[in-house]
Design a protein around this nucleic acid. Structure first.
Lengths: 251, 251
DNA sequence: CGCTTTATTGAGAGATATCAATACTTGTGG
DNA sequence: CCACAAGTATTGATATCTCTCAATAAAGCG
């Protein structure tokens, strides 16, 4: 199930609504044209298709135009973990710059499309356009911050906190892209959620049921409605209110 | 306990043995001079002193000249987690580029010194020197990869595997800097180790004792001797040769 | 419509946390 | 130089959270 490269002259960065999340932030019209000239190719991915695989030679990084992807790291014994879910406007493949090979598998959770950014050419352009260079550094840096927040969750939080935090973080990211922030469809399976936040699929399922019983959310399959956002924030340890009685286990 | 800025004209990047881990990789003599001109100031830190604190305005990033630091993220309820231990030659403060403020606390685990890299000036220089620009991107990218490996450990591995992995990773990083790879002094407490790998201090202590009983290591306080490296690699789930040396190029 | 995958729920097991007591180290001031 | 205090580390007993195993149910897909 491989990617199918195709060219489109219609879809330019200069007209893309995702600009605010992507590379062209704060660029002049002239500079935007140069980025348009660089990012000519796109890749269409079917659900389940891979944008790149661990070990692949890296020549480009990618910006998601539409769809959702996961990135996944594998262990030699077969275990693997989802390390990120990626929404439109986000840049993928940045962890491959270090040694020129992709470090993870990037897999589409639904039919998706990504812009191809030839990296050598991009670096050249970034040397000419300070605002582009700086935006790229900021994107890399935010990626670091996000991974470190995730580390904090996996290392210091309980399952219930991690799941609440996951739902809220997803909600915030969708809201930033103009979707409703309290109701959305999960593009990932319970297993992928569990892998991402470091708990088993059964625990994810149980906790979602518990959240629903407590009136925090409504779940119907992969459709989620956040009812009590404040309660979720408290549960996730992200509110000013210090102590909140943990949810009781129900049978 | 604040940092004490001081200037030194003696210690230049061009003569620094850490160049191979730091920014000046693959630079010509002339370009190296430009980096020397940029990195003029240094900061001396006493044990326990902070290089920066969460929320501080970011004007510079830092390269460790000697010593060891930890970076730490805090939760609003007081919990906190060590997200990184940092050795000479490593760049600190990269996660602050995103929004211009430091996202973590950077604290010296022993008396240390860091080079101050004014970031705006650095970006300007990086636009002039392609090799410098590329090296900076690689450093950022490797940082991402390392955090993602750490995520994998925290999300998918058991305590014993995480601790073995921690010891081996530290050993490899020390070896790369010319120290013996099988015997070293830990600069961090059991608590800091536990925080970093997401387990409690008592569990760290117990596991170290177990490793010692099993003949894998010898521990006397913070002095550690790795006896059975193969056994440790196996315990860490990294017994495959391909995974053993993260520094090598992927095939 | 049946088959495969995905999700839910329960019961029991296991790993790690928590609580508690003790020992060891390090630094400080007399 | 010693003694005391504060911090750090070890070890044991118990509690608890999450995993594992197992059975069933629901949904997606050909």
């Amino acid at each position: 199930m491989n990617a199918l490269p195709k060219t489109s002259s219609l879809n330019k960065c200069s007209t893309c609504i995702l600009g605010q999340f992507c590379l062209p932030v704060g660029l002049s019209h002239a500079d935007l044209d140069k980025v348009d000239a660089l990012v000519k190719e796109r890749v269409a991915l079917k659900k389940g298709g891979s944008l790149y695989r661990h070990g692949d030679l890296m020549t480009s990084v990618y910006s998601i135009r539409f769809g959702t992807l996961k990135t996944e790291h594998g262990l030699s014994d077969g275990r693997s973990q989802v390390v990120g879910f990626h929404l439109p406007g986000e840049i993928l493949g940045l962890d491959a710059i270090g040694d020129g090979h992709h470090q993870s598998d990037a897999i589409a959770l639904e039919d998706s499309e990504a812009c191809i950014i030839r990296f050598a050419e991009f670096e050249s352009l970034a040397r000419q356009i300070p605002a582009l260079q700086n935006q790229f550094h900021r994107i890399l840096s935010r990626e670091l911050t996000q991974d470190q927040r995730h580390l904090l969750a996996l290392g210091s939080m309980r399952a219930e906190e991690r799941l609440a935090g996951f739902l809220l973080s997803l909600s915030e990211r969708l809201a930033a892209r103009g979707y409703t922030n309290h109701e959305f469809d999960l593009r990932m399976s319970r297993e992928e959620i569990g892998s991402y936040i470091g708990i088993q699929i059964e625990t994810v399922s149980r906790l979602l049921s518990r959240f629903a019983e407590a009136g925090l959310i409504q779940v119907k399959q992969r459709h989620v409605k956040l009812i009590d956002m404040d309660g979720l924030y408290e549960l996730a340890g992200l509110s000013n209110v210090e102590n909140r009685t943990p949810l009781q286990a129900c049978s």
